[in-house]
């Protein structure tokens, strides 16, 4: 594949990324590409820097060195306004859902619409909120507060909020963490369904093998701060390397 084609199809390019916290070198020389329409799973032990990686991509954290390009733009060189424009195209689903406790579900969903000032937001916000809630099957929760919903429902609402701006890329930080296996599977199927509907690309951080099986186009193993191995679920499972196969046992 030529370089030109790569530029056209890679929506995110992370090259030689280094991040450390004092003496703890979390990411040492990490390089990955996310292609258009791909679901890239990042597997790695707790504390291996998976969440740090996606926080660097969205501009919530700054890397020590290396390059992060989102839609061809170097994230570290973006002005705050440009960063906000980029964030409108890149959704982020937080591990803890991060729904605003003091706001109703409707207000939670309206928040990114108003902040990113979507065209004709005042007229269309209600319609977009109801569309997002319908997508996740929770139309009747608009006037409830997050604390009134179960963990699975909160995750769905968080997913609805992530999707309300119709992003082209979604970064998922452990989307099934804290959920029972059945609800976790439902959330993954919903993610896949919505991905097909909106033609998004995703980077998914998870430890949940069910989620990996459902979602993965490609898997990257993040071990010792580098891209240790990459391949499909079956390819990685058949590797002889114990550090890789431990994740699949």
């Amino acid at each position: 594949m030529s370089n030109e084609t790569n530029i056209a199809t890679d929506v995110i390019q992370v090259s030689h990324l280094k991040v450390s916290f004092l003496d703890n070198h979390v990411l040492k020389d990490f390089t990955i590409q996310l292609k258009q329409g791909e679901n890239l799973i990042i597997l790695g032990a707790s504390g291996s820097g998976k969440s740090v990686l996606i926080k660097c991509i969205i501009g919530l954290m700054v890397a020590d060195s290396g390059s992060i390009k989102v839609f061809g733009d170097e994230v570290t060189e973006l002005t705050p306004e440009e960063l906000n424009k980029m964030r409108a195209k890149v959704g982020f689903l937080f591990q803890s859902n991060a729904l605003y406790d003091s706001m109703t579900i409707r207000e939670n969903l309206r928040f990114p619409l108003i902040r990113h000032w979507v065209k004709n937001v005042r007229e269309t916000a209600e319609e977009l909120v109801m569309e997002a809630l319908t997508n996740v099957g929770l139309e009747d929760t608009a006037d409830k507060f997050p604390s009134e919903l179960s963990g699975g429902m909160q995750k769905r609402i968080a997913l609805a909020r992530t999707l309300i701006l119709k992003p082209q890329v979604i970064l998922y930080d452990e989307p099934t963490a804290g959920l029972d296996p059945i609800t976790g599977k439902e959330i993954c199927q919903l993610m896949l369904e919505l991905q097909k509907k909106y033609h998004t690309s995703s980077i998914i951080i998870t430890h949940d093998l069910n989620c990996v099986k459902i979602m993965a186009s490609r898997i990257v193993m993040l071990i010792d701060g580098i891209c240790y191995a990459t391949g499909t679920f079956e390819e990685l499972k058949q590797l002889k390397d114990k550090r890789v196969t431990d994740f699949f046992d």
């Binding site: 409108a88 803890s96 991060a98």
Partner: peptide
């Protein structure tokens, strides 16, 4: 307490990602 709980539950990060 309010801002502290928002901070530990990543709501502040979520606001930043939401363009605020």
């Amino acid at each position: 307490a309010e801002i502290g709980s928002m901070s530990v539950s990543e709501q502040i990060n979520a606001m930043e990602v939401s363009g605020a």
